[in-house]
Structure formats: C-alpha cells, structure tokens
Amino acid sequence: MKIVISSEGAEMNSVFDLRFGRAAYFCVYNEESGITEFLKNEHADDQGGAGTKTSEKMVELGVQKVISGDFGPKAKDILERFNIQMVILPDNNRTVGEIIETLKGK
C-alpha cells in the first residue's frame, strides 16, 4: 500500500506538516518495498483550489492512505470519491521518519 505523509521538508527528520493542500512536501511511503520518496507540493502557494489539486495528485500517484493534520472540504470530497483513506494526526511534534516507524510497528 502507498501511504502519503505531509511534510515540512524533504528529509526523514523533517517535521510532519499539519496542512494537506498547502503542505510543503509529501513523503510517499511504499509499505511493501519500504521505499520512501519526497515530492515537492507544486500547489502549496496557489491562491485557491490547492486541496483539489493536491487530491488530484494523490489519485494519480495511486495512494491509498494520506496522513495529514487537516483536510479541507474540497480535498475531502475528492479523496472520499476515490476511496483514499484520510488519517488526521493532530500534532506536529513528530518527524516523518518517526511516523513511518510507527506505521512499520503496526
């Protein structure tokens, strides 16, 4: 399963980004291979519709689960329609690496 974690930077020790549509980066974690890849969010500074465009990206990437701090109504609408699970993690004191470790531990 492909899981995306919103991130403030492009490294494993970057802090988890509470924003989804306007997250700085996305960490794409492939559960099977254990490979992680960081993608810059091209829509982070768009004036409107960032949630929509970011969700579009998630569908294109074939992601099944997204972990972020919050999802706006437009993002929710698209993610729901494509059965992408939304996980809300309401704290930004953890790094992306730590979140992935937690996922592995499950």
Partner: peptide, 20 residues
Amino acid sequence: ENSGKLVTVVRRKAREIARS
C-alpha cells in the same frame, strides 16, 4: 478582489497556531 481567499488564508493560519 478575492477577499474570500484571504479570509481562508487567515483562518487556516489561526487553526495552525491553535494546534501548535
């Protein structure tokens, strides 16, 4: 124009601050 979008921006920041 786009005062609506500016409202969205300030509200989003307020939520971020509240969470942190």
